[in-house]
Design a protein around this nucleic acid. Sequence first.
DNA 1: ACAGTTTTCAACCACTAAGTTGAAAACTGA
DNA 2: TCAGTTTTCAACTTAGTGGTTGAAAACTGT
Lengths: 132, 132
Amino acid sequence: MTTDTLSRVFAALADPTRRDMVARLSERDATVSQLAEPYRMTLQAVYKHLRVLEDAGLVSRPHGPQPRPVRLEAQAFDLMDTWMERHRRRVEQRYRRLDAVLEEMNGDEPHEHGQGDGHRSRPGGADHPDDS
Amino acid sequence: MTTDTLSRVFAALADPTRRDMVARLSERDATVSQLAEPYRMTLQAVYKHLRVLEDAGLVSRPHGPQPRPVRLEAQAFDLMDTWMERHRRRVEQRYRRLDAVLEEMNGDEPHEHGQGDGHRSRPGGADHPDDS
DNA sequence: ACAGTTTTCAACCACTAAGTTGAAAACTGA
DNA sequence: TCAGTTTTCAACTTAGTGGTTGAAAACTGT
């Protein structure tokens, strides 16, 4: 299917096994069989997972001599990262604005945020152009 | 199914329609019908998407009087963010270390670097790779 | 109370995704 | 060359997802 890259990246990481593979690959490269070893599934299943990660661009494997190593491609994370940051920042700005308004409205009162969730504030630079 | 939160968050964002909803919600809250309006699918389908986002904790809707607004929950992004950052950072460090090694090799005599099989990091037998 | 909108539930269909088994390539080391 | 491991392809089963239609709750304004 003509699924866009971002969708493939998110979908790839939606599986715990795949996330575990990524976690282990972030420590060291590995061959497929090395990767497969801790899991209780067949080698073929692992290979399939690997394909998903590969199609998402999260992983690459230089084809050549036999023990083809699997390695993480760090820059695939950037796609997600910029997407997330853009939207997250917008919400946080809106909340900050809202907080300001509320504060102004009722001089001082610890305004609680319902069922135990506040909003996390996160340091951040400023810039980012716009697009959905 | 007892899928962990992180998986649900990633899965929720793996769909372009759902990402678009999040994008629009990052601008302003909206009712379901407002949300549904630009899409060519039925209202019920939009509800289903909404439910996925809600189950993932990406969105909340205070239940009360009728036009129930849908609002983004910024802190759900933090889960993804910390996960990503942890691993991304590790890879980047490894790459930097590799660069250093290569540089040293070029300048000096070749140094044998046995990056070969250390110990498998994950103790075997874990039947569900419930990842950090 | 009633018409109308908004929200939700439930059954169903087509399609994808995760896993299996079985077998074929492809490479490695004597 | 040949045995053995490693990697890949293919068919199939099972469960989940995105979408539909149809109808039922729940709330609104008059």
